[in-house]
């Protein structure tokens, strides 16, 4: 199963990278979204995937799925969600201020004088 999931992880990260390298601020948002998918899946792979009973003592029985990556991913998802919301607002402000979604317009003023 690892090979399949690793391939999936690779595809997710590839797509995310592709989006992040675009000029459009909207595509940047999609890139951020995809990035969190890839991350979640990759960490999830670090548990033992052959043991897949729900880690709930009353309902399931051993071998449980590894609960630690699950807890880590939960934390990461929520943090990522906060980031996404923030990025959304940032993108809106970007569009509001610069009236463009072209990220290439963000040139920094570093003139050499003289």
């Amino acid at each position: 199963m690892n090979f399949v999931l690793a391939l999936t992880v690779g595809v997710l990260f590839g797509v995310s990278t592709y989006f992040l390298l675009k000029r459009s601020v909207v595509k940047l948002l999609l890139g951020v979204l995809m990035l969190s998918y890839g991350t979640e899946l990759l960490i999830f792979m670090m548990g033992d995937l052959s043991e897949r009973n729900m880690p709930i003592l009353e309902l399931g029985e051993e071998p449980f799925a590894d609960p630690i990556p699950q807890a880590l991913i939960l934390t990461a998802i929520v943090i990522g969600f906060g980031f996404t919301a923030f990025t959304l607002m940032l993108a809106y402000r970007f569009y509001f201020d610069l009236r463009t979604e072209d990220l290439d317009q963000m040139v920094e003023e570093t003139e050499v004088h003289g």
């Binding site: 690892n2 391939l7 990260f13 590839g14 990278t17 592709y18 990759l42 792979m45």
Partner: peptide, 20 residues
């Protein structure tokens, strides 16, 4: 972009496999 994206994907996929 595509080439870089594919390379990033490959690296992460490989990392996942190697770690597991």
């Amino acid at each position: 972009d595509g080439v870089i994206a594919v390379m990033v994907g490959l690296v992460f996929g490989l990392l996942a496999l190697l770690a597991s």
